[in-house]
Design a binder for these strands. Structure first.
Lengths: 233, 233
DNA sequence: GTGACATATAAGTCTGACTTTTTGGGTCTG
DNA sequence: CAGACCCAAAAAGTCAGACTTATATGTCAC
């Protein structure tokens, strides 16, 4: 997927990051740079670079005379794509997927409303193309093809919103959608109602109908919440 | 505010980070580790650690035989609190503040709705206390006191939502609120209507009325958008 | 008990030598 | 002239070792 093993320090991170985010080292645990370097069979300089990165993600804190202490989850940079990936690969994947789906349900409707106002002709075309791709793959065990167009659809919406913060969530949404298809309960074929909603959102955006685009997208996200039994009855 | 100068590499970052996020080095610019180390009068190891951190924020990419190239803004980790702070300190502060306010307008109403369902008795008490604090500081040039309670109020809402992703936006919202008070147009005293809305949100959350909490918070964020002339007329 | 002081510890820093990857160019060949 | 191929330079990457600095903690006098 991303960039595995871009140097020695990267491989150390691929090992330490998931371990920490999985709670293998409980908050307050103290690690020593030297010991870690030995354990991973790398030099201290490499180990230090890895620790610096973990520190920039607020996963750990390095203090003199103390060592490298693991910080509580409340301090972690949960929006760091790397951290998201590590956590999605770990044990609390379901919990993580729920949090992100709720986040989606807040963001995407607003983004769709903005997209209806700001989308370029080109983006509208892309959107329609994605929706058609979803329709074409909505029947007959074509989950992978469906997923590709679904991810592209939502990414275009987020980018077309014109808000840089929304646009940056494209990767997160893609992860959630992929996670749902690959690891969670996903019925043989997608819900036809959901497919229709996507087509209608593309329409609404094309016509510049912000309120309708927002409302329709809200229905999509409500469906996503229901799939995970998040909505209270 | 945060942690200034936690070591040499930190001071290098405090200098390089703002420069890059300000666009001082346009995307594609190539930096050399050795030259940078000389320029900042630090050793290569320190410089390398700084570069690693910038790399983890996707601000730059380090490749052999090429150097450290600045990545386009679309790749940046815009949710990294450090990046947010750097950008808020730079030239495009107004633009940044707008993006974040739109983000707030999407998140906070949903968070308030969830808070109405999940808030503990203690959190309800905190919320009421914050609202009262806002009322007490709403008249007579007590902007600083008002700001403190305003920041606390929104932080409690985000945490009480029970969603970890929302909770992590507490710092961002605080930055936005502080920015509005300190650098942007802020009238002598806060809008009385906004103060009332906060009190009502606290009420709604206490009573577990999710729909009302969400709607009232939406009105608050609409006000914030209007202050920045974001809403189309 | 309290405060000043000594000490051990682990991170922080610097330096210099060496390795590895990559790219751009130059050369050879068809 | 085009394409394949090889070489050398360049820059990041890695390592080892010596030294510096901050600081938690224990000790001792008062």
């Amino acid at each position: 997927m991303s960039t595995p093993g871009r140097g020695l320090h990267g491989r150390v991170l691929d090992s330490l990051g998931p371990a920490i985010t999985a709670g293998e080292y409980p908050p307050g645990s103290v690690l020593r740079t030297d010991e870690l370097a030995q354990h991973f069979a790398v030099s201290r300089s490499v180990m230090r670079e890895a620790v610096r990165v973990l520190e920039s993600m607020h996963l750990v804190e390095s203090r003199r005379r103390v060592g490298v202490t693991v910080r509580p989850k409340a301090a972690w940079n949960l929006y760091d794509p790397q951290v998201i990936r590590w956590r999605l690969a770990g044990a609390d994947r379901p919990h993580q997927l729920r949090s992100l789906t709720v986040l989606r349900s807040a963001i995407e409707p607003v983004a769709a409303g903005l997209a209806a106002k700001h989308a370029t002709a080109e983006q509208c075309a892309e959107l329609t193309e994605c929706a058609l791709g979803m329709v074409a793959n909505s029947r007959g065990h074509k989950l992978e093809g469906y997923l590709v167009h679904d991810m592209a659809f939502h990414r275009v919406i987020l980018v077309a919103s014109g808000n840089e913060m929304f646009a940056r969530l494209g990767d997160v949404v893609a992860e959630v959608l992929a996670g749902r298809t690959h690891h969670e309960v996903m019925f043989e074929d997608p819900d036809p109602a959901a497919v229709t909603l996507h087509v209608q959102v593309a329409e609404a955006v094309r016509e510049g109908d912000a309120a309708r685009a927002e409302q329709l997208t809200r229905e999509i996200t409500v469906g996503a919440l229901q799939e995970l039994d998040i909505l209270a009855p």
